[in-house]
């Protein structure tokens, strides 16, 4: 375990110099929030109205949280990195090191995004507070529970993107798969909670990754209940196991037929 903590720590230290790059991302994030604030203000005729179980403030906080999770993930560049590693054969240089490649890329990605995640949380909370004037009521324990759920969401997203990246072993470019995945998350998981969708789609969404990578933590933040937490927590554990297994099998099969450029 010590080696994986070191991988995390080394990546974290390495990324400290990119702190200022995060600020550029804040601009896009802020514009998006202004759009949603106006959109929901338009949809909700008065702020106390409840639509599909959500007040206007809850809806805005929901988007703030899902966008924090999505923006700080930087999934596209991570997917490209894995995919490029596979295509160029660079992945080979990780094979003869005594660590598990999947856990290596997981810890390294978590390490590289930690600072960004913290900064997005601070910025997102600030934006929410400025727009809405208050935070959702949460106890210290429930804040910790939301944080745990967010970290798990981050882990699952990273593993799923690793899986998509590793697809380059099978087809040369995994970018189209990532494109589909990111658009599904954006439309079905970031903007609207599951309750906004027609009844017949809801079970599909509940069993899809959207429930654990996006909806879960945001739902807990805007409308916390321990029942929900336990349900989401179990679903996340199951998803971590499934996503890890998918990565592991693809990687195991892939390296057997690895070609390395230049030899």
């Amino acid at each position: 375990m010590r080696k994986y903590l070191f991988i995390y720590k080394s990546e974290l230290m390495s990324n400290l110099q990119y702190v200022f790059n995060v600020f550029a991302g804040f601009i896009g994030y802020f514009i998006l929030m202004v759009i949603f604030l106006n959109l929901w203000k338009y949809v909700y005729s008065n702020p106390d109205e409840i639509i599909n179980g959500y007040s206007m403030n809850q809806m805005i906080w929901y988007v703030i949280v899902t966008e924090i999770l999505w923006s700080s993930l930087s999934g596209r560049s991570f997917c490209n990195k894995i995919s490029e590693d596979v295509r160029s054969g660079n992945i080979a240089y990780n094979i003869n090191k005594p660590y598990n490649y999947i856990l290596y890329s997981l810890m390294s990605h978590l390490g590289s995004r930690t600072i960004c995640f913290i900064m997005y949380v601070i910025f997102g909370m600030l934006v929410g507070f400025i727009f809405l004037g208050s935070f959702p009521t949460l106890s210290i324990l429930s804040i910790i529970a939301v944080l745990i759920s967010s970290i798990f969401a981050f882990i699952i997203s990273t593993l799923l993107i690793t899986f998509i990246g590793l697809f380059s072993f099978v087809i040369e470019d995994s970018a189209p798969f990532y494109w589909v995945y990111s658009k599904l998350i954006l439309v079905l998981g970031t903007i609207f909670p599951i309750e906004y969708f027609p009844k017949f789609i809801r079970p599909i969404l509940t069993f899809s990754p959207i429930y654990v990578v996006s909806y879960g933590p945001a739902k807990l933040f805007v409308d916390f209940s321990w029942n929900n937490f336990i349900f989401i927590f179990i679903a996340q554990i199951i998803y971590i196991i499934i996503a890890y297994m998918l990565c592991f099998v693809t990687y195991k099969k892939g390296v057997k037929k690895l070609n390395v450029n230049g030899g």
């Binding site: 080696k3 070191f6 991988i7 080394s10 390495s14």
Partner: peptide, 17 residues
């Protein structure tokens, strides 16, 4: 590349237990 050789060596030490 962003780390010092010393930090790198510590990292490799950890990798090899």
């Amino acid at each position: 590349t962003h780390l010092t050789p010393y930090d790198n060596f510590k990292f490799f030490g950890a990798i090899y237990d």
